[in-house]
Design a protein around this nucleic acid. Structure first.
Lengths: 125, 125
DNA sequence: CCTGCAGTACGACTTTAGTCGAACTTAGCA
DNA sequence: TGCTAAGTTCGACTAAAGTCGTACTGCAGG
């Protein structure tokens, strides 16, 4: 408000902040395990989440709401957490929202080709 | 049974038969589902089975015993069945033994690169 | 014929996942 | 200051997986 802050931006910038919030707890690259990752991806809803992030997100993280799933919030929390704890996604807290993106580089380094399979997946043919 | 069936072979041929036994029930190529296959591969023992088949079997099918797992037989049956029903392996009955091999062509066609990940897998680093 | 052996089938038990309602937490905003 | 909205946490329920003992099937060899 006060002019002291300098010109407050008239435009409301979406959070693409200079200093990113810390990621929520997640396995390191060395801790990534194939069987765990495959387990996380063996669920249709989670496959949908990852695929959507891969194909439709243009370099932004996305909040749970962005996906538009018609499920109780607690179910979504469950699945997003499963993906993060398996090391498939990274989550950061932006104010109220918890946004996710796929750890593309890590996964491609550890399991090359895996994400291509997810991207090519067709939900229930 | 009657002797009318002609001369029974004097030499006992190991089963590399001209007419192979029918494969046990399994999904068709069209029925292969990524989430199901990933689920089947999300278990360390099954990953071990598939990897061993990929790396150490030289174009032969292998019976359960060949793997040398120290587990009850009923557990092994369970896992081999899970792999077959997911479409990862094919099983044929040769006399007493039920032998398995990986459906390499089918899997490479549907999920290219997936088997490479399994082959590269290192059991519990 | 009888015994041994490969593997299955069945069933009980335990663990883990998924599903969801309800209460709670917290940032942003008026 | 107090509302609202995004998302979590907790707890209960249910369904599915993994584990394993025991009994069974069916070929093979003495």
């Amino acid at each position: 408000m006060s002019s002291t802050a300098g010109a407050a931006p008239a435009i409301k910038v979406l959070p693409a902040p200079p200093g990113l919030p810390e990621p929520l707890p997640e396995p390191t690259v060395e801790e990534l395990r194939l069987e765990t990752v495959l387990g996380a991806l063996s669920d249709p809803l989670r496959l949908t989440i990852v695929r959507k992030l891969l194909l439709e997100s243009e370099q932004f993280d996305h909040s749970c709401g962005w996906f538009g799933f018609d499920r109780p919030k607690s179910s979504l929390t469950h699945h997003f957490k499963a993906l993060r704890e398996a090391g498939v996604t990274r989550q950061r807290q932006y104010g109220l929202e918890r946004r996710s993106h796929v750890r593309v580089d890590d996964l491609n380094a550890c399991f090359p080709g895996l994400l291509d399979l997810v991207a090519a997946w067709a939900p229930e043919a």
